[in-house]
């Protein structure tokens, strides 16, 4: 039998993923990165429309980075908290998050060192050669974190997203040049996150109703 305190901690962590808003948020972020890469890869930078479009895109990106948390909080105050209530995780939960983020940040470094060790050093420290593997490293990092969360929170949708991120990252590293491959990776994972978050939110809104007033 699992310790009820541990079980309760797991419930708190699952709670923050009930509405799918975090996935939608992450999905929009990844789609914006993918869109930027596609814009800069496929467009003629000397065209008249390019600079204004790039500027608008950069502003949208900055606005997203600045306001995303505020928007998510505002939406939660309107649709999540009135349905299932508000809870703030303790200091332990926050510390655990920092440790997980540190592990995720370390993974690309470890992957890079291993790739250098086992790839036979065909081109030495040629930066472009190593950058070609960037989507694979992104996929490995994000995918591992997603699978970790999926197992820990017992949410299968995170397992699927993790497997997709790793497979897509490795596949585009083999099949496409760096910029296009990275753009496809971000667009693919962003769409998957958006779809998963959207479906979760739809299900949440239709199955979890605000409590009825007691007589």
């Amino acid at each position: 039998m699992q310790d009820p305190i541990v079980e309760a901690r797991g419930r708190i962590e699952r709670y923050s993923q009930l509405d799918g808003l975090m996935e939608i948020d992450a999905g929009i972020g990844q789609l914006l990165i993918g869109g930027w890469l596609i814009l800069t890869t496929s467009s003629n930078s000397s065209a008249m429309w390019y600079k204004p479009i790039a500027l608008i895109y950069a502003l949208v990106f900055c606005a997203f980075a600045l306001f995303q948390q505020r928007v998510v909080r505002a939406i939660r105050e309107r649709i999540t908290y009135p349905r299932i209530g508000y809870v703030s995780p303790g200091e332990t939960g926050r510390k655990r998050g920092i440790v997980i983020a540190a592990i995720c940040a370390l993974l690309p470094f470890v992957a890079g060192v291993l790739a250098f060790r086992f790839a036979g050093r065909p081109t030495g420290w040629d930066l472009l050669h190593w950058l070609q593997w960037a989507p694979a490293v992104f996929g490995l990092t994000f995918g591992t974190a997603s699978i970790f969360f999926g197992v820990r929170l017992r949410l299968p949708r995170f397992l699927l997203i993790g497997i997709l991120a790793i497979s897509l990252g490795v596949a585009v590293s083999f099949a496409y040049p760096l910029r296009l491959g990275t753009a496809i990776y971000f667009a693919g994972v962003g769409s998957a996150l958006l779809l998963s978050g959207g479906m979760t939110l739809w299900t949440y809104l239709h199955t979890t109703l605000p409590p009825a007033e007691e007589a």
Binding site: A8, R11, I84, G85, Y86, V87, S88, G90, E91, P211
Partner: peptide, 18 residues
């Protein structure tokens, strides 16, 4: 107590749900 022990704070509705 067990619900509040693992969090910093929670509102009335959350406690009622749990």
């Amino acid at each position: 107590a067990a619900t509040l022990y693992v969090v910093k704070e929670a509102d009335f509705l959350y406690l009622q749900r749990q």
